[in-house]
Write a protein that binds this DNA or RNA. Sequence first.
DNA 1: ACCGGAATAG
DNA 2: CTATTCCGGT
Length: 471
Amino acid sequence: MDCNCVSDLLLPPVPALWTPGFAFPDWAYKPESSPGSRQIQLWHFILELLQKEEYQGVIAWQGDYGEFVIKDPDEVARLWGIRKCKPHMNYDKLSRALRYYYNKRILHKTKGKRFTYKFNFSKVVLVNYPILDMANSPFFLAQNHFNGGSAAPDCSPEAIQSLFPRLPDSGRGTSLFDRGSAPPGPEGDKLRLDTFPFLGSGAPCYSKPPSLLGPYPRNPPFDYPWSFNPYLPGAFSLNNCPKLPPGSLYPSQFYPNPLQSSLSQLPHPFSSLLPPGEAAGGERGAPGQTGGTNGTAGGQPARLCLPPYPGGLPIGRTDIGNGATLGERERVEANPPSTGLGLGLGAVSLGAGTGQQSPTERRGGVKQDPESDSDLEITDLSDCSSDNENEHDFGIGKESSLVSRSPLVLDGKKGSLLPPITSLPPPVSPHPLKSLMPLTPPPPSLPPSLSPSMALHDRHREAETLKMIHS
DNA sequence: ACCGGAATAG
DNA sequence: CTATTCCGGT
């Protein structure tokens, strides 16, 4: 009694729909490193609130992509306290927790704007959707002809993007999705890939007009239980962001069952991968709930709509990245031995942990990227730049080690599991990382598609860089 | 308001 | 590990 932690009831991290067995794979909930800890993480919670309309008065997307404003700090803190059964929670404490995310790069503070923070979706995405990580995986390498692989699924950022719906705009949302939230996941941080351009930081961001949000045209066959999806800050949407090719994802077969089931619960992108029947599986049906007070809401169906990329978007890449060295990034990824999807997490997830280094290290003053952090902040220059960008993250190097575990089932066989890549749409942008790279800053709108050849070229270069590094 | 160190709890 | 709690500093 002390606290009724109703919280769970109120904001179930997982919608009722999920069955235990079915819920997201572990990786979705916790970093591997912390076994047991599957408690909801603050950022998940924030995302959760953001996705629910009922909390719009308390916290809402606003500003740049991924930016949100805590309109009622005390309330947010209160809700968080409820959720965590910490009756004495207050904004000061909550914000401290939020600050820890800076190093992890999950969040940034939007300077100059009170109570305004910005998600680094790229990171979040990776963390949560390891699949994306494929980019890092050998798989992806295959693509690059490193391995000679034949085609591989498109892991490009663009592809990733396509996975997500558009962003939450400030607006209102019509759908839940607008504001998507995020899926649970470990956050990792280490991956440097994270820096996807979308995040915005790099790109010029336009703030979104409220109207953007948009309805996603398509209705999802399923909804996400949690609805998460979020990430998408609108970033993708428009202008600045890279868009993805319409079909970039992998075919459903791609995923093995276990995963599959999980996928079905995932937000659209993934779900859509599954065959309709399966995907839907879940669904929500349940409704329910409402919780009452604040919370809950669980029921909302989230809608995820997929962005239909009707015509297919051009794939532009916009990456604006910073030009940091690509080589490095890749290098990081390359290391992981794991195979297939599994690794995605590996690489990424750790991050969180690492975020802070061991105390010792910390003390040493070594922060990993001292700078990078700083970068995060953006200072918003006028609006556009958002900020941060973060991008530079230069390496951290440790991550690779983490990889040891790969949760997903997939891994084992990468090959077999993997789908016929061939069936995939033509890879447009192959290299995910690449997109990170700084190409020329994209014009405000999308860049014309990139030329494939270039891409290859780049990859090639990267590869070489890698080699050099290795040597 | 916001930052981040330090200690500490789970 | 993540978050909580405290807290001194801007």
